[in-house]
Design a protein around this nucleic acid. Structure first.
Lengths: 363, 363
DNA sequence: GCATGTCATGTTAGCGCTATCTTCATGTGA
DNA sequence: TCACATGAAGATAGCGCTAACATGACATGC
């Protein structure tokens, strides 16, 4: 029942958090007032260069680190960002979290991870968010495309950020990549290597990026005057399983493709497995490309040629936007901003010229 | 420059956090004092049943949620747990994070995710932790087995928790499973189905669980009076890549195994891929089993028979232990507690009786 | 009956920080 | 010259909560 029994500094010490230096300590050391220290630590306006240096020296010497709890209390602007997820693709999620948690940690914001079932009622969800005191929401795919959810969150006045959506909302922040362009690049690469029968495995139609990626594929073909063949476009849903089926169908064709572009890495990995099961050499007999550059891409063999999507960076930026919104702009929701990040074509070992090309290149 | 210009409630409102109800509001509504509300919200000792009900009703009515920042400030016991990771196996990490973040969120603790390179100097690391004001450390594998790191953290007086280690330290909390027993069960299952040539792909020797799992394999063989064959034990390092090589070696044997037990799912998946490349049917020609039951196990085809390791629950419990330590026990480090959780053999489609057994069972 | 204990509750004083107001020195232009 | 803006500080008052102590109402034992 008693813990501070033998503590030499009763009462006092037991409440203080491991007697860490406080602003007061720094102020004393630097021979300035409390507020001056606070000003230096924060924006740093209205402080003379000389004073700032003194304070900074004192901070360094004492190893002062601001107490975030006190800051939040005094400032009244605690940032609690709910990360809603429904797609348990662990590779995506963990990379996402790395970016988001990193940014949150730097800015002393809280990330609350909330699993959101497929058919959850948006109203219930909003209630839950309130209970968690969330004041911003992070929406990775596929939730970023859920219109009802977006509308509900907007109505609740919560700033939100869509990550990797194909259709950024006017009422939300959004961080995207050029899905169409990236896919186009990938397909163009294959065409340049001599492929003309290029199969495509599309993504889940409930994610808006699926359309964009497919459009990129079609555009690349059109630009090269290759007539699109409907039998070379097979629908998947981003799962490995669906990739297996899709690849089987593509390879069962009477005139099978010499390359398969899958709209994510999981399905590309599945296509690879199917190719091997059919006794095909990759990339000798069949080139296979993916999208995302998740861990899977370098896990499997041969390593996948794919599009590197900067998931972690996207999460980081989205988180930063929300933090800025909550901390600064009280008129949230109107001046939403959309950001598009670059992505990169990563050439690895799963693609190459088609077999007939290696015999007589440039046919 | 000015934001509260037209605000009807100057000064006052701009500082308060979206005028949420506070203890004072609840106290007023319930007609009791501030402290009584606090007591109800916390431990709840020394409050009459009648009063408690009144307060709880008021809390429910107003939708009061305690302000954690204020609590931490007043209580002086902010919990900041550093999660050190070096193994970027995303499947593991994201499941781990789910458990840990969930528990942390419920208990209003902070999780700080810190990437820790292979050869980082423990001294530097401790410095970094101090800068983050971390007051507890979570150590997933393989860091949980780094003796130098453990020693250094202990010296720094930081309570720590090892997750999935084979060698719990006296100075740390630990959450483990019965790695040896689980592997034994798996191998026994194969033996019961008629296998006797069972290959084994071991894990990274820098993780203590590797030994335990292999010991389980050997024990199961010994119990069944099957002479161990050194050529059936191949070393891997938990990576898919190493699994490919190991499986190739096993299958290249003059008398190849009829089953392969890999000490994790990634390597089992690799073994599966190699089997397919060799034209072997799984499980018809070869049974393949894994360990962990990560997303990989159900992603690939056929789905993997494996050991389900409750990663998320392990992370949750470890986090809970650390929170309890920081919040309550000031004599940390001595009364460390170790917990062992149950794990489960998950029978899926990648195992079955060996081919010759299907012809003449019970040979 | 009075000292003493126990329980339910109230009062007070901060936790460490920042918003806001105030002060005091400097410019600046009429 | 003085009113007035501007910049660089300091003083003060809380943010919402809880630890520690104080109070008052009973029950207990001698």
């Amino acid at each position: 029942m008693s813990s501070t029994e033998k503590s030499p500094t009763r009462g006092r010490k037991s409440r203080t958090n491991a007697n860490r230096p406080t602003v007061a300590d720094v102020a004393r050391a630097a021979e300035v007032s409390l507020m001056t220290v606070s000003r230096v630590v924060n924006h740093g306006t209205n402080v003379s260069e000389e004073t700032r240096k003194k304070v900074e020296a004192a901070i360094a010497e004492l190893g002062y680190v601001p107490n975030q709890a006190a800051r939040n209390l005094a400032g009244g602007r605690e940032v609690r960002i709910a990360l809603l997820y429904s797609n348990p693709s662990s590779a995506y999620l963990s990379e996402f979290l790395m970016g988001s948690l990193g940014e949150a940690s730097v800015n002393a914001a809280q990330i609350i991870v909330e699993y959101c079932e497929e058919g959850v009622r948006p109203a219930d969800l909003v209630g839950k968010l309130a209970a968690h005191r969330a004041n911003a929401v992070l929406l990775p795919p596929p939730l970023c495309d859920d219109e009802r959810l977006l509308k509900r969150l907007q109505k609740a006045g919560l700033p939100m950020a869509q990550i990797a959506t194909g259709r950024p909302s006017r009422h939300a922040y959004a961080v995207t990549i050029d899905d169409a362009g990236a896919t186009e690049d990938l397909v163009r690469l294959l065409i340049e290597q001599g492929h003309s029968r290029i199969g495509y495995i599309s993504g889940n139609p409930n994610q808006t990026v699926s359309e964009l990626r497919q459009a990129g594929y079609e555009k690349a073909l059109a630009d090269a005057d290759i007539a699109p063949r409907p039998d070379l476009i097979v629908s998947g849903d981003f799962s490995y399983r669906s990739g297996l089926q899709a690849a089987e169908r593509l390879l069962a064709s009477t005139e099978p493709p010499t390359a398969i572009v899958a709209s994510n890495d999981d399905m590309a990995a599945a296509a690879l497995a199917v190719a091997h099961r059919h006794g095909l050499d990759v990339p000798g007999d069949l080139s296979v490309c993916g999208f995302d550059d998740t861990a899977m891409a370098t896990t499997i063999w041969p390593e996948l040629t794919t599009i590197r999507q900067p998931i972690s960076e996207m999460a980081r930026q989205a988180t930063a936007m929300l933090i800025a919104d909550v901390r600064e702009s009280p008129v949230a929701g109107v001046d939403a901003r959309h950001v598009r990040l670059d992505c990169e074509l990563v050439r690895r070992a799963s693609h190459g010229p088609p077999r007939d090309m290696t015999v007589s290149p440039r046919a």
